[in-house]
Amino acid sequence: MVNITINGKVVRATEGEMLLDVIRREGINIPTLCQHDALEPAGNCRLCMVEITRTEWDGWKKYVTSCLYPVEEGLIVSTHTSELHEIRKTILDLLLANSPHSDVLQKMAEEYGLHKTSYEPNLEGDNCIMCYACTRICEVLGKSAISPVMRGHEKVIAPPFGEEPPDCIGCLACAHICPTNVITWTDENLTRTIWKKKFELIACEKCGKATISRDFAEYLIEKRGLPKEYFNTCDDCKRVELAQKMGALVDKAKEVAL
């Protein structure tokens, strides 16, 4: 354990844990867009910046992204200076310029007193903020079906060659993790479509309800050694099955007792 100071208060933390985690544990609110607990920190959005210094630095200070700054003894952290306010506001302003229609960004910007972007808004802009959450989660899944392509302002998230991603298994993790809800999909008549690729949804063999795609189920079966039968019925029907099994046991016990 180490001692650090956050906004004047001494706080204990585990050496090497990320500063953002400690800050949040203290109930201090910092906006973030690219951080997610299921992902390694990436440092794309830069919203989580804080100011750090140490007594021996003699007043010298620097700005670091707290989501990937490992805690060390003696760190003195400020999370809400006027310069940090300016940094976060500018970042949100820039993001809003590129995605003026994003309600998520609008709401975050409002909190910094920004009702509209100071720059010329890109009315055709999509809402992608390049946090890489989608590509990173797909990598965690072990698929890396999509990736950032091109450079700079031209950069987009796309499947290889912009075609149906061969490695995609239709799990929707990318779509759900996206902080600005950019990635769209549809589920219609037991067919899921995402990244223009179509997937068969497994229909419950009792009631027909669909939960996940067949490709995803097969991946889980193979990767995690799960029995295939688990995926044949939906959760509702499986609960009823369980009730019936338990009931049968109880009735049998009663009969035996009689």
Partner: peptide, 16 residues
Amino acid sequence: KESCGKCVPCREGLYQ
């Protein structure tokens, strides 16, 4: 043109 486009200040900031 050369910004890799990963972080916001560089990608969007230099663009603006």
